[in-house]
Deep mutational scan, measured.
Amino acid sequence: MDPFVVLVLCLSCLLLLSIWRQSSGRGKLPPGPTPLPVIGNILQIDIKDVSKSLTNLSKIYGPVFTLYFGLERMVVLHGYEVVKEALIDLGEEFSGRGHFPLAERANRGFGIVFSNGKRWKEIRRFSLMTLRNFGMGKRSIEDRVQEEARCLVEELRKTKASPCDPTFILGCAPCNVICSIIFQKRFDYKDQQFLNLMEKLNENIRIVSTPWIQICNNFPTIIDYFPGTHNKLLKNLAFMESDILEKVKEHQESMDINNPRDFIDCFLIKMEKEKQNQQSEFTIENLVITAADLLGAGTETTSTTLRYALLLLLKHPEVTAKVQEEIERVIGRNRSPCMQDRGHMPYTDAVVHEVQRYIDLIPTSLPHAVTCDVKFRNYLIPKGTTILTSLTSVLHDNKEFPNPEMFDPRHFLDEGGNFKKSNYFMPFSAGKRICVGEGLARMELFLFLTFILQNFNLKSLIDPKDLDTTPVVNGFASVPPFYQLCFIPV
């Protein structure tokens, strides 16, 4: 058959498939802009700032609406009420993970971030239990974070109060905490193996944040037939998995079943207990991918939040002064901060919360999916439909947070200066898919920041009023603009 005829037939089939998918069930789905064949609503979305586009569309179609990214149908949730109703009140029905062709290629359905069903539930339950087990290797997770915080302070001392970009050092600290939990080992910041790991993690975040990856996920045929950065992403992930597998083999040879040292040991012990169960989800494949998931999810998000926190503290020296006064009063100079201190430091706690609220790190979270046909607000959402959640619409709700575009710790303080919780605080998402490392991340943010401010004054290279804190939105995360500062020993 003539190649031209084959091409026309293929394009015609794709067009018909697109029209059929977009028209099927439209009477039951939430409203939304009319999609174009094949490309859907992509032309109506700013790929570099999806969150802003969703906010604009919500003003037209309401808090629940339908979009098509290519052939992929998505239902968008915008605003606290619908997000709570879906992710919390109907948590089980909305607990699936959205379709990610690239991740599915890399992870093969294993791990904790992109798995679904029984596998996801069992691996998540085990990971939560293990991360909360403060007795691994007779050292609590808090001990590990405190140790890394001391190392971080010593690295900052080496800058000798000269101007520096904190990106690298602030990236090393949370990565080392995860390494300590998974591998029972922290690395020197100049260790070549550690630097290679950091390089792969950072490069992957840069790649994932590009519009090209959005295109690959919406048109998965590209993955096999086109060159691009997605190939580098898959190569980096394969490198990390190979490295983790080597460490798993080392653990198998040296493990003491009665004295687990780290996450890998705990997983291997669980595998041993379930070795007679042919349906067990505790396999080497799941261990390797879960460890890679924890490394990827637990490094860049925390380091970016820390980097943004220091920029905001530079911009608002009056806030920094209040935090340091609270540190001096509650902790002093002669001991290290600990998590028990947080309950006695409402202002510092409010500042950490406000940093996370203000920066809105992951504006749309990772997409969910419905696990069955769901009736939601008089609409029928078919099983498997991807759910896109606007966390921006919750964290920047102007009824809950007056002047949401302003950095103001009073958003989390009552009139008496006591810490005030808010149900709208969802930087880790909400419901059954809430970030498994939430507790660890909150511990790291509090301890790293208090250790830094206990030991250093922060000095800006320019007038604080002239510092730009506008986030650089890159399609996946909101990151701070480049800046330098000086760490002046107190």
Rank of each mutant, 00 (worst) to 15 (best):
P3I: 12
V6L: 14
C10N: 00
S12Q: 06
L17I: 15
W20M: 14
G27S: 12
I42W: 12
L43A: 09
K52Y: 07
K52H: 15
S53P: 03
T55K: 13
Y61L: 00
V64H: 02
F65K: 00
Y68V: 08
Y68L: 05
L87Y: 05
D89C: 08
L90V: 09
L90R: 14
S95Q: 11
S95L: 05
R97N: 02
G98M: 11
H99P: 13
E104P: 08
N107M: 09
I112N: 04
V113Y: 07
S115F: 02
R119M: 08
W120G: 04
N133W: 10
F134W: 12
M136T: 13
K138L: 12
R144F: 12
V145M: 08
E147T: 14
L152P: 00
C164F: 12
D165V: 03
I169M: 15
N176F: 01
N176W: 00
C179Y: 14
F187L: 07
F194R: 03
F194G: 05
E199G: 12
L201D: 03
N202S: 15
I205P: 06
I207P: 05
I213L: 13
D224S: 13
Y225A: 11
F226S: 08
T229Y: 13
N231P: 05
K232T: 13
K235S: 13
L237M: 10
L237P: 04
M240I: 06
L245P: 01
E246A: 14
K247N: 09
K249I: 11
E253R: 13
I257M: 12
F263C: 01
M271R: 11
K273H: 11
D293W: 04
L295E: 01
T302M: 15
S303Y: 05
T305E: 02
R307P: 00
L311T: 04
L311D: 02
L312R: 01
K315R: 11
H316Q: 08
E318W: 12
V319C: 10
A321N: 14
I327M: 06
R329G: 09
I331H: 01
P337E: 01
P337A: 08
R342Q: 14
R342E: 09
G343I: 10
A350R: 01
V351C: 09
V352N: 02
E354V: 02
V355L: 10
L361D: 01
P367V: 05
F376R: 00
Y379P: 00
T385S: 06
T386W: 07
L388C: 08
T389V: 14
T392D: 04
R410S: 14
E415R: 10
F419R: 05
Y424Q: 09
Y424R: 08
F425P: 02
P427N: 03
P427T: 05
S429R: 02
G431N: 01
I434S: 13
V436N: 01
G439I: 08
G439A: 13
L445T: 07
T450G: 05
I452V: 15
L453R: 04
N455T: 09
F456A: 00
I462W: 09
P464V: 11
T469L: 13
T469I: 15
V472R: 13
A477R: 15
P481E: 07
F487R: 01
